Simulated scan of single mutants.
Amino acid sequence: MAESMGARGPGRPRSERSRRAVLTAARELLTDRGLPALSMDHIAARAGVSKNTIYRWWPTKAAVLMDAFTDAFADRVTAPDDGDALTRLRIQVRRVAQLMNTPEARRPFIALVAAAQHDPELAAALRERFIDSRRADVSRLIAAGITDGQLRADLDTDVVIDLIYGALYYRLLVSGAQIDPAYADRLVQALAPVLRT
């Protein structure tokens, strides 16, 4: 049965200390070496575990790298539980912008996205282990706003999410323009007339 940190294979239960060592090693090596030069052997050596240990928990290098990224950063981009829908959305977008402005998150994320263009396994891991859960988080936020009458009932949730995150990722991956909380505020403010009832 799959777990959030990879599939647990048969045999001994995973050691939390070893798991954390593998995730830390993968993050450090991704930042230091870049993804093309990174291998399971490198991760195992840095973590002080055997390669077989890593393969018991993760099926591919892509799965290790995505879990390493999400383990470190996913909790920092969740939407808050309290407040009106637009305020919660603004805070969530600010959190993403702030994270993407942080070198220890920005560099590995760009490397993962770039490599995913030529690596189907990594692309699938990126969607399944990071992007899908972020979209689901915002979808729930928008659905709650619609239910509460704060957002328009006819909103196309997928398009709204694409507009917001497409703008962020365009700056991150294409234009190189600044991503910061002030930009996040301007982005949500520009969409507010379309979103409100």
Rank of each mutant, 00 (worst) to 15 (best):
D81T: 10
L35W: 03
D162N: 11
Q92I: 09
A2C: 12
T197S: 10
T197K: 09
D41Q: 05
G9T: 13
P80Q: 05
R76C: 01
F130L: 15
A63Q: 15
W58F: 15
R8T: 13
F109G: 07
L168N: 00
G166F: 03
R17Q: 11
D84C: 07
A62K: 09
R95H: 14
Q150R: 12
T147Q: 07
R127Y: 10
R171F: 05
L86Y: 05
R152T: 03
A72I: 02
R171Q: 12
A182T: 13
D82H: 11
A184G: 12
L38R: 01
D154K: 01
M66R: 00
P36Y: 08
E3S: 13
Y165L: 12
R95N: 14
S18M: 05
T60W: 04
T70G: 12
M40R: 09
S39F: 03
D75P: 05
L163H: 09
I142C: 03
R107Y: 10
R33T: 11
Q117D: 08
T87A: 14
R19P: 03
D71Y: 04
L23Q: 06
S50F: 01
T78A: 06
A26W: 09
P108E: 10
G145C: 06
A177E: 14
T53K: 02
A182G: 07
E104D: 14
A125G: 11
P59C: 05
R76A: 06
D84M: 03
I179D: 00
A125Q: 15
V64P: 01
Y169K: 00
A114C: 03
S39E: 08
P103V: 07
T31W: 00
R186P: 08
P80M: 08
D158S: 12
Q178W: 02
Q189Y: 13
S50G: 11
Y183D: 06
R152H: 06
I54P: 06
L173K: 01
T60I: 05
S4W: 11
V113G: 01
L141W: 14
S39M: 06
V188N: 13
R90V: 07
L30K: 01
A111C: 04
R135G: 03
E16W: 13
Y170G: 09
L89A: 13
T31K: 08
V188M: 11
L38S: 01
R196F: 05
